[in-house]
């Protein structure tokens, strides 16, 4: 395998449609993620964000439309091998039979990219980065949801991807760790121009790190723009989504 320069790569999505279980999930998406940007996708639960990410990394094939990576269709042989991509799954998706250290080092050890001592060093470094120093020997089943998510992020970082997909990276994390993760997404992006696609419900994270934000609803893109444009846009759904807050009617609870 050749080692591509750690520069971000671009994605184009054209007319992407997908039905799952007879239900249309994605109804014709068109957008572009530019090289080296942080592209945040927001949208109500069940709107198809995870399904979209799975298409972008090649786990699902579109019914219609195409996805281009650096101008080449993703289905073409070799395209996925030429570019290094990583995905942080919503659930973490750690291998439950391996301990944390082996999970994080899996990519390097399976592809024999580094000697074991070097792998151990990289693993320790990435674990420290996500605030899990010294957790190598623990098993995924013994971790909390948030810890698992952070191990998954460490595992993705080990790949040194040019393109990284995060599915809800900060859900289940406490605010402090969430900020650290947000900063790390930013830092990776700024230092190595890693293109990042972040699906999140976390408005603060979105507005804190995004170069552009896309809002999807019912498998369609409602709006794409910079954080400032999103805030200024009068679209009702956008407005609702961004200003939703706890607003209980206190009188109802009064005796």
């Amino acid at each position: 395998m050749n080692t591509p320069s750690p520069q971000g790569i671009s994605i184009q999505v054209r007319g992407l449609r997908k039905s799952l279980g007879g239900q249309p999930v994605l109804n014709g998406l068109d957008f572009e993620v530019r090289q080296g940007e942080i592209f945040v996708i927001m949208g109500p639960s069940g709107s198809g964000k995870t399904v979209l990410l799975k298409h972008l990394i090649g786990l699902l094939d579109p019914d219609e439309g195409e996805i281009l990576i650096e101008g080449e269709p993703i289905g073409q042989p070799g395209v996925m091998d030429r570019h290094r991509m990583a995905m942080v799954f919503q659930s973490g998706a750690l291998l439950s039979s391996l301990n944390v250290g082996d999970n994080v080092g899996l990519y390097l050890s399976e592809h024999r990219r580094k000697p074991p001592a070097e792998i151990a060093r990289i693993v320790a470094e990435k674990l420290e980065l996500v605030g899990l120093k010294g957790a190598e020997q623990r098993m995924p089943a013994d971790l909390s949801g948030g810890m698992r998510k952070r191990v998954a992020i460490a595992r993705a970082l080990v790949i040194e991807p040019q393109l990284i997909f995060y599915d809800e990276p900060t859900s289940e994390l406490d605010p402090l760790i969430a900020v650290t993760i947000g900063e790390e997404i930013l830092r990776l992006n700024r230092r190595m121009q890693v293109t990042s696609v972040v699906v999140t419900h976390d408005r603060e994270l979105a507005f804190g790190i995004a170069d552009r934000i896309a809002l999807i609803n019912d498998g369609e893109i409602v709006f794409i723009g910079t954080p400032a444009e999103v805030k200024a846009n009068p679209h009702p759904l956008l407005h609702q989504f961004l200003t939703a807050d706890f607003n209980f009617d206190t009188k109802r609870h009064a005796p």
Binding site: F89, S91, A93, L95, S96, Y107, E110, H111
Partner: peptide, 25 residues
């Protein structure tokens, strides 16, 4: 059971995103 639970809990997907062939692995 083992491969089944790996499929259900997306571990197989995770392998594939790491370019690790589940057949080999």
């Amino acid at each position: 059971a083992e491969i089944g639970s790996m499929t259900v809990y997306q571990e197989i997907d995770a392998l594939r995103t790491m370019n690790i062939n589940p057949v080999h692995y």
